[in-house]
Design a protein around this nucleic acid. Structure first.
Lengths: 364, 364
DNA sequence: TTGTATGCGTTATCAG
DNA sequence: CTGATAACGCATACAA
């Protein structure tokens, strides 16, 4: 039962119109240029005129029209952000980091989600480019293999900074975590807990971060004298966005003749997807199987208090990426030296007990 | 150890410059107006000229400069969204709904977070207004009591649609859920499970939704012949954004001489905050105490499989709010009839067993 | 059918 | 110290 009101506006089509420099000029009997200069506290303007202009401006709450400014300055003071999903702790935290820097710099942040679709990512980028953003922060989708869309804009001079899911073929600033070491330490931790057949549930194979994470995992196994079994590495093409994908991977792993005794999940959605699968199939952690996963959600701790996780400095990554982007945008000359900033992950250990009761899975 | 690259750009200061209508005109020996009209497929232009222009435009990937368009049309084709936090399932889902509509309409969405701070909300709004947004979608912060900042812009003609945390004194479209019925049914459910002393952990007292939710809770108690005890209603001024606040409320409730046997938490963050508290204090649900909460997180199910929740149609709320906003923006004449759309919540029942073992809490 | 002129709000350049 | 003018990219009323 909707209820109705009469709008306060009396005049028809009275639009939300702000006061302009012209209005001030007219009201004060000055020229627009004088007002403009007074506003910018130019040395050429008399103290008295400045006073008058500033007062009037304050009274009528004058704000320069950013669109007119953009047209003139050829910059929109807005940057685009493309991530797969904002409903993902890692990315929403990263966005917070981006936002905090942007806010201080007076920049707008326009967020787009690719929903792990390459097609959507291309559309998003088109959209953002057509909105004349001054720069782009992107963590590519799992599907993204062809990077022509990014390359083209980058060549045209659009400042781009990659974070997390970087691509190697575009030369610009990048912000990642030390995925190799993070995965190495995580895997090592599982090994030290007594697990012998550790499966790796990981992201799309094409992603740079996936490759790095898998390398860390393999190295840890090798260093511990354990065999690497490619069949225990499961790549999820949609990064766990679709639960069915995780279910399929897990079914595959657990129906293997030599079932794994632990799972190492290397993404937020994969870790929770895994837990979801376990719940559905009444598998408990760590009684039935070991689990260690990447996670940035505050809830993982609640999900399973005995779950050791790899936490990424998401906020800091966002901050750093945005800082680097601002650096490119604000530099007068084209930037020629690009850096890849590597931050460290945190291994938050919560599983105090050792692996003990996995025999039934192992023996079967 | 950052590594360095040389940028591909050779010429100094080569800026990311797009092709303009002027360039096309010059190249084709036409005037800008002819090109402009050809682009908009005007009837005045000869088929041949159109052909030439369109081909050239396609070849050089011409895109009209949205900023110039904005300046001319006095609309930026971007709308502002203010929520407390995007790292909150309810809001990120709502944003997805908003985004889906915006995308189809060719609109930009600029997201700002108030982080439950009134001051920040005012700043966000100033920022957005200064970016000349065409409309605003807002769910106010818990701190927001004074709505002058919104009122002023609304009076100036800025289209605003409220969703979820609406304010009553501004006459415009609003989208909410039926909080009263949602809370009523949830409380009723707890009562039917056998709980007798149901506490209500709820949001800031000033919020409209809080009041509605409390009313539903009270009505259910009364209808069941149970007494309403104001001491069992705990208002959280920051909506659970700060865990300490939840902890304090829970400590208070549980140190009461007549401890509650169940908690009804009426917000995403309050529900998870509650679970966090329980975990810290080794209280299990529903063995030690009953719990039912509002939640939109996919993880709640995992958190406690026996947890019945109230789920809000967040995506649909976002969609609907954006549709209403577009309606205002696109209407030629000022909108005079405003509706308050009310959607229904879902009670997702998961606690199959009845209340049974709460005696120790009750008896103490 | 096409071209010219104007304006959107601002600032920079140049001329008083 | 201040004012007139042009320019940013586009659309459109008006002129041809």
């Amino acid at each position: 039962m909707p209820y109705f009101y009469w709008h306060l506006t009396l005049e028809p089509c009275m639009k939300f119109e702000a006061i302009t420099i012209k209005d001030i000029a007219k009201a004060l009997g000055l020229s627009t240029s004088t007002v403009s200069r007074a506003m910018r506290d130019s040395y050429e303007i008399s103290a008295e005129t400045k006073q008058r202009v500033l007062e009037y401006a304050k009274e009528f709450n004058y704000r320069p029209n950013p669109i007119a400014l953009s047209l003139k300055e050829k910059r929109s003071r807005s940057i685009g952000v493309i991530v797969c999903e904002i409903a993902n702790s890692f990315f929403s935290q990263a966005i917070n980091g981006i936002e905090s820097v942007a806010y201080n710099k007076g920049y707008n942040v326009i967020i787009s989600q690719s929903h792990e679709s390459y097609e959507r990512e291309v559309l998003d980028l088109q959209f953002l480019a057509s909105r004349s953003i001054d720069g782009l922060l992107i963590s590519v989708s799992t599907e993204t293999k062809n990077i022509e869309h990014l390359q083209k804009l980058h060549n045209k001079g659009l400042p781009i900074v990659f974070f997390d899911r970087i691509v190697s073929d575009i030369h610009t600033h990048k912000v990642i975590v030390d995925n190799f070491t993070g995965s190495y330490n995580a895997t090592k931790h599982l090994i030290e807990k007594g697990y012998k057949r550790i499966a790796n549930l990981t992201n799309a194979e094409g992603l740079f971060i996936t490759q790095d994470r898998v390398l860390g995992y393999k190295k840890a196994l090798k260093d511990a004298g354990l065999l690497v079994n490619e069949q225990l590495i499961k790549y999820c093409d949609h990064g766990g966005l679709i639960q069915a994908e995780v279910d399929a991977a897990m079914n595959d792993l657990l129906s293997h003749k030599n079932k794994p005794d632990a799972i190492f999940a290397t993404a937020d959605k994969l870790t929770t997807g895994c837990l979801q699968y376990f719940k559905k199939n009444k598998i408990t952690v760590p009684k039935d199987i070991g689990l260690l996963g990447f996670s940035n959600s505050d809830l993982t701790e609640l999900l399973n208090p005995a779950l050791t996780i790899v936490k990424q400095p998401a906020f800091e990554m966002g901050e750093k990426a945005m800082q680097l982007l601002m650096q490119i945008i604000e530099s007068k000359r084209p930037v020629k030296e690009f850096e890849t900033v590597t931050l460290n992950t945190d291994l938050i250990v919560r599983d105090s007990t050792n692996c003990n009761s996995n025999k039934k899975l192992l023996k079967k």
